[in-house]
């Protein structure tokens, strides 16, 4: 387990500085790869459509995932519902590269997340704060991403989650050793991971930004806030020019500190995805509130 877990954390390290794109078929996967994506997330509907259509969102058809895996040479990820360990067993059997236990799909279990330590395949999980991130890592996640608010094209939640995590890490670092157990209790986080973060001043795994990234500027903002890389869901294939938007976000993620580059890649991109103001969403329409 330990050796496998290290290898799984290592793959996430290789994705750093890159963009992982949601795709719903092999053709989109090729477009994403050609645009310079470091990985693709295979799913049946992008979050914006899941949001629109409602009902129960589940793991994608295995045939679709296999077709996408066939079409590209970059890593392929796919989503399972929170707590649905059988969907995860199936994705492990297909032999993809990473599983996202995702709040974007309808949770299968409102009490328990998947015991990810029992799998060989790596997992990425969403988190809104440090406690949630460390709970997922405690269960065996080898990569973390912000939850943001997927399918809205609105960056505000992803910013909040990233700032919350980095702020809490800074606070934890400043505590003295005898204060850490109380911090662990208050955060609801495993004590040994609280100690690790206190000593190292960062998460023990790679941390990407996700949920609401719609423009190159959004991607660069999340990178400057300390993200290791970017997930883009609906932001690419719901924009008016997916190819160009995909490339622009890849360039902006690599050159996130270079304003001149950000200006040139943002020019004449056309319409970004249709966006949603968050105060128009009811609580039960907020994906970030799923999971704990």
């Amino acid at each position: 387990m330990n050796e496998r877990y290290e290898l799984n954390k290592n793959l996430a390290q290789m994705l750093k500085g890159g963009v992982i794109m949601d795709v719903v078929n092999a053709e989109q996967a090729k477009i994403a790869e050609d645009a310079g994506a470091v990985a693709v997330m295979a799913l049946e509907k992008v979050p914006a459509d899941i949001r629109k259509e409602g009902g129960v969102a589940r793991m994608s058809d295995p045939k679709l995932i296999k077709e996408i895996k066939e079409a590209v040479s970059i890593p392929v990820m796919a989503k399972v519902r929170i707590g649905h360990f059988v969907e995860a067993q199936m994705l492990e059997a297909i032999g993809i590269d990473y599983i996202d236990e995702s709040e974007v799909l309808t949770p299968a279990d409102d009490m328990f997340h998947i015991d990810k330590e029992t799998f060989h395949i790596p997992f990425v999980c969403g988190a809104r704060n440090l406690g949630e991130a460390l709970r997922r890592i405690g269960e065996g996640a080898s990569m973390i991403r912000t939850k943001g608010e997927a399918g809205t094209g609105n960056i505000v939640e992803a910013v909040r989650h990233m700032r919350t995590m980095t702020g809490e890490i800074r606070k934890l670092k400043a505590l003295s050793k005898d204060e850490l157990m109380t911090a662990a209790k208050e955060m609801g986080a495993p004590y040994h991971l609280v100690i690790w973060v206190h000593e190292n001043g960062k998460l023990p795994v790679v941390n990407f930004a996700a949920g609401g990234i719609a423009t190159p500027a959004d991607a660069a903002l999340m990178m400057q806030l300390g993200s290791d890389g970017i997930f883009v869901g609906s932001g690419i294939f719901k924009s008016s020019n997916p190819q160009k938007t995909a490339q622009a976000i890849v360039k902006a993620t690599a050159y996130y500190q270079d304003s001149q580059t950000l200006v040139s890649v943002s020019e004449d991109l056309g319409q970004p995805m249709q966006s949603v103001a968050l105060d128009t969403l009811d609580d039960n329409q907020r994906f970030a509130k799923r999971g704990w």
């Binding site: 310079g36 994506a37 470091v38 890849v250």
Partner: peptide, 14 residues
């Protein structure tokens, strides 16, 4: 290490 298609593409573009 990383993704060769991504790094290769950026090498060309920049």
């Amino acid at each position: 290490g990383g993704e060769s298609t991504t790094i290769g593409k950026l090498l060309k573009i920049f």
